[in-house]
Computed example of a mutant assay.
Amino acid sequence: MNSLLNDLCDFNRTKLGLGINITPDDVDLADLVADTVDQLRAAYPARRIDLEVKDNVQGIWDGPRLQQLLSNLVLNAIRYGAPDEPVRVVVTGHDAEVRLEVRNSGPAIDPLSLQRLFDPLRRGPDQEHKNADGLGLGLYIVSEITKAHQGSIEARSDQTGTAFDVRLPRRR
C-alpha cells in the first residue's frame, strides 16, 4: 500500500510540473543492482533473474530511485515475460554513461502499445481487465526517474522478447 501511495505522489508531482525528487550521491551500480536483484530473487524464487555487470559502473545518481527504477523494470519483465525463461539484467559502464538493460523472453509487444508504454495509468493488455497489482504507473515512473537523471530510456520488442535500455550519464 505504501508503494502505491508513493507512486501516486510521484505521479502527482510530475503532473504539477515538479518532477521526481532525486538526491544524487556517489553510487556503485554493481552493488546497488546486485542487492536489488537479490531481493527480487527472494521475492520470486520460482523465477530466474540473471545479472551481468561489465566495466566501471560508478557515478553520481540517486541510489534509492535507481533501485525503484530497476525493481519496476524487473517486475514488469517477470509479469509479462515467459515464465520458464530468465529475466536478464545487464549493466555496462562506458566513458560518459552507464547502460542498464532489462530483457525478457516472450511475445512481442505490438507497435502501438510499444509507443505508449511509458504513458501513465496504462497496464499491459492481459492486465487491463484483471484485478492485478498496480495502477499502471510503473513504467511511467521509470521514465520520470530516468529524465530526472538527465538520462534516456528506450523499449524494443520482437518475437524473441522485450528489452528496456536505460542510459544514465555519470554526472548530472
Rank of each mutant, 00 (worst) to 15 (best):
N6T: 05
D7L: 00
L8R: 05
T14L: 06
K15S: 10
L18D: 01
G19L: 02
I20K: 00
I20W: 00
D25W: 00
V27T: 11
L29A: 11
A30D: 14
A30Y: 09
V33H: 06
A34H: 11
A34R: 11
D35R: 09
V37A: 09
D38A: 13
D38F: 03
Q39C: 11
L40S: 07
P45N: 01
R48I: 08
I49Q: 04
I49R: 00
E52P: 00
E52A: 13
D55T: 03
D55S: 13
N56H: 09
G59I: 05
W61P: 03
W61S: 05
D62L: 01
D62S: 14
D62Q: 00
G63M: 00
P64V: 07
L66T: 04
L66M: 09
Q68W: 12
L69Y: 02
L69A: 10
S71H: 10
S71N: 13
V74Y: 07
L75K: 14
I78K: 07
R79K: 14
Y80P: 01
A82C: 12
P83F: 13
P83V: 12
P83D: 14
P83H: 13
E85S: 13
E85G: 02
P86R: 07
P86A: 12
V89A: 09
V90Q: 13
T92W: 02
H94W: 09
E97L: 08
L100A: 06
L100I: 14
R103M: 13
R103A: 14
N104F: 08
G106N: 11
P107D: 15
A108G: 11
A108D: 10
A108S: 14
A108T: 07
I109G: 03
D110V: 02
S113V: 09
Q115I: 00
D119K: 01
P120W: 10
R122S: 14
R123C: 15
G124D: 15
G124Y: 15
G124T: 13
K130P: 09
N131I: 08
D133M: 06
Y140A: 02
I141P: 04
V142P: 04
S143R: 12
T146Y: 07
H149Q: 07
Q150S: 14
G151H: 02
D158S: 02
T160C: 06
G161N: 04
T162H: 06
A163F: 01
L168P: 04
L168E: 02
L168M: 06
R171D: 11
R171P: 00
